[in-house]
Amino acid sequence: MGPVSAAETEVGGVDDPVIHTRALTKRYRGGQLAVDALDLSVPAGSVFGFLGPNGSGKTTTIRMLMGLIEPTSGAARLLGHPMPRAARTVLPQVGALIEGPALYGFLSGRDNLLRYDAADPTADPRTRRARVAAALQRVGLTAAAGKKARAYSLGMKQRLGLASALLQPRRLLVLDEPTNGLDPQGMREIRALIRELAADGTTVFLSSHLLDEIEQVCSHAAVMAQGRLVVQGPVAELAARARGRLVVTTPDTSEAARVLKEQGVADVVVTEEQVSGEPPEREPAELNAALVASGVRVRGFGVERASLEDAFVALTGEGFDVAG
């Protein structure tokens, strides 16, 4: 393992996006447009959440990024190199978990990793056993390493898949639903691992349907719907886009609802002791003054911060499957 030449590290520069696509499009042979003119930009060092309902083109995008599927048109660059042309130079620096783990059931967990490591021509066979042992340790599978993979639980398989992405130091990790099948404790461990990897400078591209997961670990996010990119940016900005809801706590709910409608509040919902709605583009204090002037006894008045889920629903117009 010689020293890395300056030219190689400088390719693309440190601040250039780690993943960059331009009008990336995939139309399957049946004519179905899976990904439509996608312009994605994943900044170096980010933990990038990739969101979208099922069938929105997330997996097709990931497969194009990893060189498994040829784009119909457009271009994708990974670590500054064009894909799939530069697969041989780029992919050794990329760890991936794509659509769940796939294992050789008749091999032990350790032998599965040895197999995948042998497939990488840049992996040094002299350090193979040590690297496999370290990867197993990192995902907490050391004790089960000798067991046949077919006897693994879904969670253990998921961990082994993650371990195969960690066989080498990586500049980018592409993780498709990494906490799928894990119990809450396992999820926490994997999220901690992801933060740890990100702290080491690895860019993590994380697709997930768990919005709280994205909110917990991601610095950036992109939302896809029906093959198109709806929005991308820092998570804080995305959440800020969805306007918060005005919530008034009062015993005089019907009177409060009438006043709020008069003042231009849309989508007014009355529940026991509470009236909520979408605030108009005005100073909220004016609304409060109007309520008090009409004799409404206001016990609480405020705007609730929107969650990423609200942002997501607002952006895609679809509900989202949020697992507890």
């Binding site: 393992m1 620096q93 840049t122 690297r131 370290a134 990192r138 130091p169 500049r171």
Partner: peptide, 18 residues
């Protein structure tokens, strides 16, 4: 899941020559 057992040091991420 321990951080102490990081992967064997390999200098940098990039440019492994087979």
């Amino acid at each position: 899941m321990s951080r102490a057992d990081a992967l064997p040091a390999e200098g940098s991420h990039a440019g492994r020559t087979p």
